[in-house]
Design a protein around this nucleic acid. Structure first.
Lengths: 243, 243
DNA sequence: CGGCAAATTGAAGTATTTCAACGTCGGTGG
DNA sequence: CCACCGACGTTGAAATACTTCAATTTGCCG
């Protein structure tokens, strides 16, 4: 939650992302002119809760987390964003959640006003945003499916599978993929994980151990998990679709 | 899961809904020409899982439920739709879930092909759809927040609050609102509720009783709950935002 | 090598699931 | 009209899973 933000000027790290792939060169140039690269260290605040977002953002590196404050004071994390995910583009309505850096992260920030203007003129960008929101909706529904499992162990298995599928081409997550299994790096703390999975850090720890004892995974380090048999996790987890 | 569907021809029950409110009269006329009213009885199937949706739908009466089949065979319900909610408009991608009537229900069905065509020509309809998807995303996130509570009682309290806020102007849900409290009718079975809240019917039953013993609600009939103090529920539930 | 934060483990208490039995309500047929 | 049936909801009791709090270990950084 510090305020120091490193601003770098060079800014074409986002052009390769899928949502920008099909856009007209002209649109891309316009976007480049209102964009800025911002770097954050873990736990820095990106956007505050309750304020209209200052910019539209697109993650280019690392992980962000979304956190919401509830009436009872709890502040659960309910989503992780990574490369290619966008945020802050809900028509300037105040954010109902805070955006924070979960790891060291890099985002591309588009100035809000001109961005909205470009969207208005560019149907394909508009379409890209719609697809993005559809993706966010489907991801939220996947989370719901995971959260509705009643054993912590199963929810954790679901989380690991999401890591393998949704973050499949993210080398910060998937260390390596061999016949013997997959090495995944957990990008967040046990505490954050507990929030995401509706539990407590101690239970998450025990759930990891349970999966290991069962033989489905191996705990190389607290944040480096070797998944021996994704199939076994699926069976045990009834997890989200393997998209 | 029967196949009998009553098709009624008259079709202007959807014009009053918020998402159609601001549209050009011309667009509305076009939509009317490709629309059809369909009525379902409780438990009838509306759209099948895994198929591209046959039509774009908008609920005009009653409740639909979304159900997804997981690899392990479970078929949890993860969302309820009601008056004004739309479905099947994800660019003709196959549905990843089934749509069923949870109660007797009435929907307005737009033929898919011409609907997409009209959307392409009508930016305001396109915008309305985007707003709709944003709403779906936010609702899914609200559910996540509720599901991440670790006590069933708290999740149930959250559900009751959603009933009071999201379905506030639905007289099928809110029977009456007085100084003494609110009477809500639960539109789904304990079994469905258990699915939504990641639990089992027996636990839901006990959770209702726990809320009653605590004095926050009164169980008039299994499906008719009198909420004495919404505030108490909020405190206990850390529930979704009271939008 | 210390020192700190995060993660893990242990043990006791609480909540939930499970399985079985019992009620309750609405509909059907005698 | 009443008895019965079946579906759904509720309750009870034992087994299981989770949370809680305290204590320990681990891993990281200076």
């Amino acid at each position: 939650m510090q305020s120091e933000v490193f601003v770098v000027d060079h800014s074409s790290r986002w052009r390769g992302l899928p949502q920008f792939a099909g856009l007209a060169e002209e649109t891309l140039t316009e976007l480049a002119q209102i964009s800025r690269l911002r770097c954050y260290r873990a736990d820095q605040s990106v956007l505050h809760e309750g304020e209209p977002p200052e910019f539209v953002g697109c993650v280019t590196k690392g992980f962000l987390r979304l956190r919401r404050t509830l009436p009872d004071g709890r502040q659960p994390i309910f989503e992780l964003l990574t490369e290619g995910d966008m945020f802050g583009h809900a028509f300037g309505a105040p954010q109902t959640y805070a955006v924070e850096a979960a790891t060291a992260a890099e985002i591309c920030a588009f100035r809000r006003r001109p961005f909205d203007e470009i969207v208005r003129r560019s149907p394909d960008l508009d379409r890209a945003l719609l697809m993005n929101v559809l993706g966010e909706r489907d991801r939220a529904r996947d989370w719901m499916t995971i959260l509705s499992r009643q054993r912590v162990t199963d929810r954790l298995a679901g989380f690991l599978l999401v890591l393998c599928s949704r973050f499949a081409d993210n080398e910060a997550v998937i260390e390596k993929r061999t016949a013997a299994g997959i090495d995944v790096r957990i990008p967040i703390s046990r505490m954050d994980l507990a929030h995401l999975l509706g539990s407590r850090p101690e239970s998450i720890s025990r759930a990891f151990r349970a999966l290991a004892d069962r033989g489905d995974i191996e705990i190389r380090k607290p944040d480096l998990i070797h998944i021996k048999a994704p199939g076994a996790l699926v069976a045990g987890a009834g997890a989200a679709k393997l998209s």
